[in-house]
Amino acid sequence: MSELSDVERAVYEWQIWAPEFGEQGQERLKDAAVLITRCGGLGSVVAYELAAAGVGKLILAHAGNVEPSDLNRQLLMTHESLGTSRVQSARRRLLELNPRLEVEAVEENINEENAAQLVAEADVVVDCAPLFEERFLLNRAIITQRKPMVECAMYDLETHATTIVPGETPCLGCLYPERPPEWKREFPVFGAVSGMVACIGAMEAVKLIAGFGQLLTGQLLVGDLRELNFRKIQISRNPNCPACGHLAFSRLETQPRT
């Protein structure tokens, strides 16, 4: 495990004070690589918070250039970067905050060709994609490679978050056996809503890597910022899941849904 430099001890001093995290947790973050895709309203804030927390490497996958409508929520984009590469803007802004961070900027969205390779480079995946097609590709790759994945999503002022550990928790396919046909690429969004669930997702990644705290495993955290209601919905593995049904159900697991 990598040791912390003097600069790192100074920068992360106040989070090293967190009980059950400490220097060991910080070293684990330093040694970790996290894949975040895409790097928009959700992904920008996840990336920013993980860079701030001292994760060693971020792999950011997002195609295309910055557009005006990105700027109400994609906090790693800037007015100056309009018309230029999103991931390059993200990379630049992240390195301003944390120059020790290694950033792999991939100018592609998740697709059939790159999903396995990108997931293979990461210890943890944070899924911030705006399309179910991309989410399902990530779900398949993490199941094959047995990597944990944090799922964050939002719509209007509602948020969903859960953490998937293949073979232990429900996967995305357990919740949605088929692609939900109603979902549209364009959706109402405020930056503070995607930012909020992104921070929850970032902390799930920190807890996964550092090995402390309670995770949203087997639970879907549903948030509503119109009414300020939060609830945890218990979710369970589907033994007929097209994606993960073939993975063994441990005897210690809560009785799977029949």
Binding site: A129, F132, M154, Y155, E158, H160, P180, W183, F187, I233
Partner: peptide, 10 residues
């Protein structure tokens, strides 16, 4: 009873 909908905003 709650009817949640699949959401995927990112």
């Amino acid at each position: 009873v709650t009817l949640l909908m699949a959401i995927s905003g990112g």
